[in-house]
């Protein structure tokens, strides 16, 4: 480039046409790229339902209720003034335990892990108690179980008010 041209460029003010142009251009290209980035995130979720409405607290008898076990993998347990939602996934290797009402325990058929009604493990290879799911009340007074949030007893999380309903 000739000297003259270069000199002339240096003498331009900051908000010259050129700088405006480059700023606008960068912003526009940046905007387009960010749009592309946003596009890679879905707007709809095809994953299975992780939360569900579970009726009212007075619809559950004391003890273990299995009505949601097949559809959502949750035991509704009402005991000692609380209603909570136990996960039915054994903490040993992930099998599904069975509730034995005669012996008042959950017993996993795979390796014999045993849990009390409150979910605490007491026999077999299970290293920790069953997990509890977040359980809340909607404005209409219906129970809502949210399986995306999990509470573990060994971490002291069973005192978290979201892990039980007072009944």
């Amino acid at each position: 480039m000739s000297e003259d041209v270069r000199l002339q460029l240096n003498r331009r003010e900051f908000f010259s046409f050129l700088s405006v142009a480059w700023i606008a251009f960068t912003a526009a290209v940046g905007g387009l790229l960010s749009l592309a980035f946003r596009f890679s995130y879905p707007n709809v979720n095809f994953e299975p339902e992780m939360e569900f409405l579970a009726g009212r607290t007075d619809e559950y008898p004391p003890g273990v209720d299995e009505r949601w076990k097949n559809q959502f993998g949750v035991w509704m347990v009402k005991m000692e003034g609380r209603l909570f939602a136990l996960s039915n996934i054994c903490t040993h290797l992930g099998c599904i335990p069975t509730w034995l009402p005669a012996e008042i325990k959950f017993k996993c058929p795979c390796h014999g892990s045993g849990y009390y009604m409150n979910g605490v493990n007491f026999e077999g290879p299970a290293p920790r108690p069953l997990e509890r799911y977040k359980i809340t009340l909607t404005a209409e007074g219906k129970i809502k179980v949210d399986k995306t949030k999990v509470f573990r007893q060994e971490k002291g999380e069973w005192d978290n008010p979201d892990s039980y309903l007072t009944v």
């Binding site: 010259s16 046409f17 050129l18 405006v20 142009a21 480059w22 700023i23 606008a24 251009f25 912003a27 526009a28 905007g31 387009l32 749009l35």
Partner: peptide, 18 residues
């Protein structure tokens, strides 16, 4: 440069529109 500025601003507006 003026043309560039004009076109770039036009592009920016279009991206906004998008």
């Amino acid at each position: 440069n003026k043309v560039f500025a004009f076109l770039s601003i036009l592009l920016l507006i279009t991206v906004f529109w998008v």
